[in-house]
């Protein structure tokens, strides 16, 4: 019996980014600040949002798409990707 499997919390990560054609003024402001740190050669900065969700039970993929599509991202201006990490196999002693 693997105790860690019982403790596994399905953690889903939703990454949200502005669509490429949507201007990201925040990213531009950061890009403009980088030379002040002596960093040159950065040609583009885009800022997105990472959302981590923990579920009591393995989530329904359809439901995940719905919550990303309807709430976490606005598909008019944003793209999103959903990552469901696999539990790490326990090679216990």
């Amino acid at each position: 019996m693997h105790a860690c499997q019982e403790q596994f919390v399905p953690r889903v990560v939703v990454d949200v980014m502005l669509k490429p054609e949507i201007l990201d003024p925040q990213g531009q402001a950061v890009a403009a600040a980088l030379p002040r740190l002596g960093v040159t050669g950065v040609t583009s900065v885009r800022i997105g949002r990472r959302v981590e969700l923990e579920f009591a039970d393995p989530p329904d993929p359809e439901q995940l798409t719905e919550l990303a599509d309807q709430l976490l991202a606005n598909p008019v201006i944003e793209d999103y990707s959903i990552t469901v990490p696999e539990p790490v196999p326990e090679d216990g002693p």
Partner: peptide, 17 residues
């Protein structure tokens, strides 16, 4: 209204921030 899809499009951060 835009988020609710009662109107098209979206409102984003002012271009000049």
């Amino acid at each position: 209204l835009c988020e609710a899809h009662l109107l098209p499009g979206a409102l984003t951060r002012n271009r000049h921030l």
